[in-house]
Design a protein around this nucleic acid. Structure first.
Lengths: 381, 381
DNA sequence: CACGGATGATGAATCGATTCATGGTCGATT
DNA sequence: AATCGACCATGAATCGATTCATCATCCGTG
């Protein structure tokens, strides 16, 4: 069908399925327009710096100066140029600037799950820092898929973004290893750096797990279920490790932690996990969830089954998202400084990206989590 | 301080505070490198199409062909070029492509509040459609601030994005009016088009409001509180209008709707509204909230005050976000097809943006909301 | 009056990819 | 053998902004 359309215009088209959109773009009309519109509105392609220069009767260099170093231009000239800019509705083209500069003024943020308010907060922090530095932010969602992640990283490389904030979905690190070839700086978010070659901002997940389970144990519980997530995520493993450490501290064996694995980290998965929790014998009296979405799901499953929280089963979540505090039974949760994490990560990235003389030293910042006790765990039986 | 740093290198710098980052960038080293590295890794600037051409022993045009129309290149040549690409780790520069093409391959999405899962779903739908078309998506957050909105729209214009999906924060429409000058297509999301000059995808909010309040009335309630939001948002007004229509249908006067205004649309604002609701005399027996975040906040305030839901007060929310179903008392809510809306909007935008011969006709798509009844309203007193 | 210095404006070169008119080669047909 | 077409590859022009060496003015001073 494409060929049929192509065959119609005059010149004998070769028989190849050429994927050309707008075959002639506008070379001819553009040249025509450039010769001498000035006043007429005609086809009116968007105004470029040359149009402004012509309109103001100056050179393109001067227009550029007005935009980038206005103090170096005579006020009179500047006013004329600004008037021309205003009149033509001129907006400078970032692509042209980028082409010269070698990289764009956009920072990328690649998170595991935009449905998780935790990452929304991270994004908020990063965005604030980036915009303060005059950069745009491109927020993307890998959905925990290494393939998606690879695709996005490729996109970022093509865009020559000035840097990437990423919470890796690919535990093997292969994606990032490949990405490193492009010499685009990146900062790991919510993940410790594997070596010293990378900046990273993370929260001490081991400690977070210990806080959560320690809290439950000190309330008298002797067995705790752990609703986990994909086993290849560091966060999940570290929180488990912290949980086990807390058990050990209390003189309990590792078997006192009953793991309820979960493929995903959302509310629906939490409901499933809650159902499985109810089927366990003996039934644990407390459950620690790898994040708040799971906890909310568990809470709902228990509620539906008539199991009282915290009287029958206590719940502790992780992340302390807004909805944790807003739940039917407000959730005890381990708060992560998400906004701060986003901001710090962006600042580290800016530092690395502004670094011209190789002075930058990679840093790993580890933030501390904080236990927020609410009703879901506060009154042990 | 900047001047001191600038004064050091040889050439006599003029005494102006020039804001130049990386003053010399790399012209000299680059030219040097371009003369003949080939083998050595040296300063190793990122490889461009010319490097690939040299390495493969072909012209740049051929490299371009290999990338964009591989079937037009002899397999043998193609293999050589691909090998060179692989070896040099070449990634084509989007900025250069964009410069020629006149616009980027990025679609922008500007939403009111990324903290609202409703918009996250919209983003999900849009992203899916955009990526299917090979475009990247830049998700941004105006936070209901017209000023932020204006700033982002300016950024989009500079980036020459191929189109913008926007839920306007500026009710006056001035921001978009100004943006229209740039000839960048845009589609309104969750908002009806003011005229025929724009595409739009929205949900029938009047009907949504009517569904919600009609449901409450048919359950026997005779007075309904409406927790609203910023008065200049169309959504808020339309939902109120629908609510009033439902009252009229039931033969009740407009006064039967008691408005509890709210500045913001988040859970915290909902808690405040809930507190005010409790202070009303006579106390309404039912409350309709302009969105689920408010409803969750109200629910929590009522719960904390020992008011039973739905026995004492029934609640209906709006949006049917995941957390509505996961609430302590699962929320009755008006479901909006958010993902579909995002997808449709993106598709309309793609159509308009691909339109070369002016064939495109602007369309306004209005989707229908759906009432999802859950426990928060299901058993009237 | 000549010269130096400061200040403004200029315009060509440049970034990297795309596009297309052009040229070259080979095979088939007349 | 000459011609034509098909097929490949080439390289120059182009997109729009930045940058810098260069030029033009003007003022003050010796």
């Amino acid at each position: 069908m494409g060929e049929g359309r192509l065959g119609e215009p005059g010149p004998p088209v070769r028989g190849r399925p050429v994927p050309q959109r707008r075959p002639y773009d506008g070379d001819t009309p553009r040249t025509g327009a450039a010769e001498g519109i000035s006043g007429a509105g005609q086809v009116a392609r968007v105004a470029g710096i040359k149009d402004v220069a012509r309109q103001a009767g100056v050179s393109v260099g001067t227009v550029s100066n007005v935009i980038n170093r206005p103090e170096a231009v005579l006020p009179e000239t500047r006013a004329r140029v600004l008037a021309a800019i205003e009149e033509l509705g001129y907006v400078r083209s970032e692509s042209a600037r980028q082409l010269r500069a070698g990289r764009s003024r956009i920072m990328a943020l690649l998170v595991l799950d935009m449905g998780n308010p935790f990452f929304v907060d991270v994004a908020r922090g990063a965005e604030r820092a980036a915009r303060a530095a005059g950069l745009g932010v491109m927020v993307c969602n890998s959905d925990q898929s290494p393939a998606e992640e690879a695709e996005y990283l490729g996109l970022f490389a093509e865009q020559r973004v000035c840097g990437v904030l990423v919470t890796p979905a690919d535990a093997s690190g292969r994606n990032l290893e490949a990405f490193a070839r492009h010499r685009i700086p990146y900062v790991l978010v919510d993940r410790v750096a594997p070596g010293t070659g990378t900046c990273a901002v993370s929260v001490d997940d081991v400690r977070g797990g210990a806080l959560a389970v320690g809290h439950l144990l000190s309330a008298g519980h002797r067995s705790v279920a752990y609703v986990s997530g994909p086993g290849d995520l560091h966060q999940i493993r570290d929180r488990r490790e912290g949980a086990l450490a807390a058990l050990a501290d209390a003189g309990l064996p590792p078997e006192a932690l009953v793991e309820i694995p979960s493929e995903r980290l959302d509310v629906a998965a939490g409901r499933d996990a809650g159902a499985r929790l109810l089927g366990l014998v003996p039934r644990p009296t407390a459950v620690f969830c790898a994040n708040d979405l799971l906890a909310l799901g568990v809470l709902q499953a228990l509620y539906a089954a008539g199991v009282r929280v915290p009287q029958d089963i206590a719940i502790v979540g992780y992340d302390d998202i807004e909805f944790a505090a807003a739940a039917a039974v407000p959730l005890t949760s381990v708060r992560q400084p998400a906004v701060v994490m986003g901001r710090l990560a962006a600042e580290l990235l800016l530092e690395e990206s502004d670094d011209e003389d190789g002075t930058h030293e990679h840093r790993s910042v580890v933030l501390q989590p904080e236990l927020v006790v609410r009703a879901s765990s506060s009154t042990p039986r």
